[in-house]
Amino acid sequence: MAAAAAAGAGPEMVRGQVFDVGPRYTNLSYIGEGAYGMVCSAYDNVNKVRVAIKKISPFEHQTYCQRTLREIKILLRFRHENIIGINDIIRAPTIEQMKDVYIVQDLMETDLYKLLKTQHLSNDHICYFLYQILRGLKYIHSANVLHRDLKPSNLLLNTTCDLKICDFGLARVADPDHDHTGFLTEYVATRWYRAPEIMLNSKGYTKSIDIWSVGCILAEMLSNRPIFPGKHYLDQLNHILGILGSPSQEDLNCIINLKARNYLLSLPHKNKVPWNRLFPNADSKALDLLDKMLTFNPHKRIEVEQALAHPYLEQYYDPSDEPIAEAPFKFDMELDDLPKEKLKELIFEETARFQPGYRS
């Protein structure tokens, strides 16, 4: 834990890192770190609560700039109880001085990944967590956004079992017609939660990839272990087919990539493993919904509104309290091709509203 900075004593240090967030945020305490930044909790002297502050230093890398800009653009436009918001952003007053960006968010005690390492969940908890994931996802999908990296560590939890989806750095506007060349190379989302079509096709992607990830998360809540822990690309596919069985001819016809289709045709026939054999203690309604989410063919996979209306979630289902976005989200430009200098300018502009004396 960093010592509390005395008023006016300059930035606090946390594990050798400068955290320049005073005077409003003090009493910093280390939480963890990701690929390009550290997260601390801090005391907000204005709202009198502890908050989470993520320090991001992305400006050396085009990919990190892209992810940072995506996350900020999306989260500043989203407003939903099951999606983490941005409360404040701290950065230098000029673009030349801006080396880091500090993002202030609600402090959540833990995440689903940490929880599943230590606790076996009751059916009631599984049901409530799944409902909140789908409630947040309904809003995301209504904005025409794909999260693309749903996994237990991106689901934040607090002691009252509130759940918030975080990390929109890989999110995209849904565009089933656009052929994202190089899709697989830039697709760094965790393999275990990846839909089979991501490994088999490169053309376009749809909201059904997020539903697949939610199915993987439900299976993990039922058993405290990942359902498809593939060691590499082909191993991942083999794990999936080992449980779902061989795809039907109709399902194979959806695979545009001939090499991928021929690979699947070359494999020995596998039978589907019954879900109640894998999860003998699970609620039968939970397994019915799991089956509809972990469907090989993305066109037959359940959609988020149908999933919310499934009998497993009937005690929570309330369409009048499951809000959607006001308007579909649009990125003005494809960020993939922009140089990091341009992305830095866009991050600077996007964060201006939090600067003292800002006038829109």
Rank of each mutant, 00 (worst) to 15 (best):
A2E: 00
A5G: 07
A9C: 00
A9S: 13
G10F: 12
E12A: 11
M13R: 14
V14M: 11
R15C: 12
G16I: 00
G16Y: 09
V21T: 13
G22N: 08
R24E: 08
T26W: 11
T26I: 15
N27A: 09
N27R: 13
L28N: 02
S29P: 04
M38D: 12
A42P: 03
D44M: 08
D44K: 03
D44T: 01
N45P: 03
V46E: 07
N47W: 12
R50S: 15
R50A: 11
A52D: 14
K55R: 13
K55P: 06
P58W: 02
E60I: 01
C65T: 06
R67N: 00
L69T: 03
R70N: 02
E71F: 02
I72S: 11
I72M: 13
I72A: 01
L75Y: 00
F78I: 15
H80M: 02
I84A: 02
N87R: 02
N87W: 01
I89C: 04
I90D: 02
I95W: 10
K99L: 00
Y102T: 06
Y102S: 08
V104T: 01
Q105K: 15
L107D: 12
M108S: 03
E109R: 06
D111P: 01
L112V: 04
L112S: 07
L115C: 04
T118Q: 07
T118W: 07
T118N: 01
Q119H: 13
I126C: 12
Y128R: 08
L130E: 08
I133P: 02
I140Y: 05
A143G: 07
A143N: 06
A143W: 07
R148K: 12
D149L: 11
D149F: 03
P152G: 03
L157C: 12
T159G: 10
T160P: 11
D167C: 01
D167Q: 02
F168E: 06
L170M: 14
L170C: 04
R172A: 11
V173D: 05
D175Y: 15
D177K: 04
D177M: 06
H180E: 12
L184Q: 15
L184G: 13
T185F: 07
Y187A: 01
Y187F: 15
A189D: 03
R191D: 07
W192S: 13
W192K: 10
R194W: 09
R194H: 10
A195R: 08
G204V: 15
I209C: 13
I211L: 13
S213D: 09
S213R: 15
S213I: 11
G215H: 13
C216S: 15
L218R: 04
L218I: 12
L218T: 12
M221P: 06
I227W: 07
F228M: 01
G230V: 14
H232Q: 12
Y233S: 14
L234C: 12
L237E: 09
L237Y: 11
N238Q: 12
L241C: 06
G245R: 10
G245I: 01
S246F: 03
S246E: 00
Q249Y: 03
Q249D: 02
E250S: 00
D251T: 01
C254D: 08
A260L: 02
R261Q: 14
N262E: 10
L265R: 03
L265A: 06
S266F: 01
K270F: 09
N271C: 11
N271D: 05
V273G: 00
P274Y: 05
R277G: 10
R277M: 05
L278H: 03
L278T: 10
N281Y: 15
D283H: 02
A286W: 01
L287H: 08
D288F: 05
K292H: 06
K292P: 06
H299I: 09
H299K: 12
E305K: 14
Q306I: 02
A307C: 00
A307G: 04
L308W: 07
A309P: 04
Y312A: 05
D321V: 15
E322V: 13
A325V: 09
A327C: 03
P328N: 02
P328R: 06
P328F: 09
F329G: 01
D332V: 15
E334H: 00
K340T: 03
E341F: 02
K342S: 02
K344P: 07
E345P: 01
L346R: 02
I347V: 07
R353S: 14
Q355A: 02
Y358P: 09
R359G: 15
